[in-house]
Simulated assay, not measured.
Amino acid sequence: MSRGIELKLSTKTRALPVAMALAGSLALAACGASNESNSGSGSSDASGSAEQLSGTLNGAGSSAQQAAMQGWTAGFSKSQPDVTVNYDPVGSGGGREQFLSGGVDFAGSDAYLSDDEVTKAKDRCGGGDVFELPNYISAIAVVYNLPGVSDLNLSPDTVGKIFSGAITTWDDPAIKADNPNAQLPSTAITPVHRGDKSGTTKNFTDYLAKAAPNSWTGGAVDEWPTQGGEAANGTSGVISAVQAGEGAIGYADESQAGSLGVAKIKVGSDFVKPSAEGAAAVVEGSQVKSGRGQYDFAYDINRTPTDPSQYPLVLVSYHIGCIQYDDAAKAKLVQAFESYVISEDGQKAAADQAGSSPISDTLREQSQKAVDAIAGK
Score class of each variant (00 low, 15 high):
95 G>M: 05
278 G>T: 00
270 D>E: 09
41 S>I: 11
206 D>G: 10
161 K>R: 09
248 A>G: 04
161 K>I: 03
31 C>L: 08
103 G>W: 06
74 A>P: 10
29 A>D: 15
251 Y>P: 07
183 Q>N: 12
108 G>M: 07
90 V>Q: 11
369 K>I: 01
25 S>C: 15
142 V>T: 09
261 G>P: 04
332 K>W: 06
232 A>S: 03
158 T>D: 01
6 E>T: 08
66 Q>S: 10
355 G>N: 14
315 L>Q: 13
79 S>F: 00
301 I>W: 02
111 A>F: 09
186 S>E: 08
30 A>F: 11
31 C>R: 09
146 L>D: 10
343 S>V: 04
127 G>C: 02
189 I>P: 00
6 E>P: 09
122 K>Q: 15
202 K>S: 07
80 Q>F: 02
111 A>S: 11
127 G>P: 05
203 N>T: 12
109 S>A: 04
84 T>E: 10
240 S>A: 14
349 A>M: 14
119 T>H: 09
139 A>P: 11
238 V>P: 02
312 P>W: 03
346 G>N: 02
59 G>Y: 03
240 S>I: 09
149 V>K: 05
44 S>T: 08
120 K>F: 01
142 V>E: 12
134 P>E: 02
134 P>I: 01
184 L>S: 00
112 Y>M: 12
89 P>Q: 10
105 D>T: 02
110 D>C: 07
89 P>A: 03
164 S>N: 06
261 G>D: 00
82 D>A: 08
87 Y>T: 06
305 P>Q: 00
298 A>C: 07
192 V>L: 00
127 G>S: 04
125 C>M: 02
43 S>C: 15
304 T>F: 01
160 G>H: 02
21 A>Q: 10
216 W>P: 04
6 E>D: 09
25 S>M: 14
280 A>P: 14
227 Q>G: 11
264 K>W: 07
150 S>G: 15
371 V>F: 00
319 H>F: 15
37 S>H: 14
17 P>R: 06
39 S>W: 09
25 S>N: 14
108 G>C: 07
130 V>I: 07
362 T>V: 10
40 G>E: 05
130 V>R: 05
188 A>L: 10
76 F>M: 11
65 Q>I: 10
55 G>K: 04
180 P>I: 02
91 G>Y: 08
327 D>P: 11
244 A>N: 05
360 S>I: 04
3 R>L: 15
41 S>D: 09
49 S>H: 15
33 A>H: 11
339 S>N: 08
205 T>S: 00
364 R>E: 07
31 C>Y: 10
275 S>K: 07
191 P>M: 00
17 P>S: 08
211 A>C: 00
375 A>F: 13
52 Q>A: 14
24 G>H: 03
139 A>G: 10
243 Q>A: 06
351 A>C: 11
343 S>Q: 07
123 D>P: 13
58 N>Q: 11
135 N>Y: 14
217 T>Q: 12
98 Q>M: 12
